[in-house]
Design a protein around this nucleic acid. Sequence first.
DNA 1: TGACTATATGAGCATCTGCGCATACGGTCA
DNA 2: TGACCGTATGCGCAGATGCTCATATAGTCA
Lengths: 129, 129
Amino acid sequence: MKRKPVRSAGEADEVFAVVAAYFAVLAEPMRLKIMRAVCEDERSVGEIVEAVGATQTNVSRHLALMLRGGAVARRKVGNHVYYRVADPTMMELCRDVCMRIVARMDEDEPMRAELLHLTPRRTRARRAA
Amino acid sequence: MKRKPVRSAGEADEVFAVVAAYFAVLAEPMRLKIMRAVCEDERSVGEIVEAVGATQTNVSRHLALMLRGGAVARRKVGNHVYYRVADPTMMELCRDVCMRIVARMDEDEPMRAELLHLTPRRTRARRAA
DNA sequence: TGACTATATGAGCATCTGCGCATACGGTCA
DNA sequence: TGACCGTATGCGCAGATGCTCATATAGTCA
């Protein structure tokens, strides 16, 4: 008897808490930069650190949060840890909103969307490091 | 000479800041409840207060933040202030993510999406109070 | 005008969050 | 094994955020 027939209003609160946490993952500029860094192919922590221009500590913490939030997944290879996008829908969401914001800002000053690497996903082989 | 030819990487940071602020509006359970309260038709502050079950002070503050964030718009009628959704895209976003989260949670326990009033928008006349 | 209603806001508090320093943990290589 | 490299984490700090109480502001009505 652990299954209730229909959830009560109080459980709707639980849903909102989860949804809020979902959006919270994307509510930080640094995490958006990390998303951009890993959106095309998986990257090691060191590569991400270099890409976003933050300290290793900070990047590591954000990655841990994003991992808990289901945004990214990790894979260990020897001494390195590679992160990749785990929730394609979240990535789409992120991309769409970024594109819209850029478009809105372009009403003032023109900007190349490619600068943000927000162009539609192109399957790209792991770049020759 | 106030227009630059192409934005630099530093201005991409500005974009991310704006996008993060955009998501931050939706990153609070109470604001999601407010979104639900105003998603179908405009509501006065008092109605919203009753709908979400929070203090008038708190609701008013959240509404002010959402107004600054472009999520809602306000309209004064006499002694009352009516808030409505100002960014339909944000509302769609919110709805979609909520639906997905609910669906994901339904893998454990079935839930009626209607309980959250997240069903596709139906044009509904202002309800007879 | 004064009493009343609806909404907004200043002040203060508790908590959360992002950040950096130092260091721990885990793996590789000689 | 020990030196080294890459990643994660304990600790502490500073600023942001959410909440409440009391009060201010703005509008209505008698």
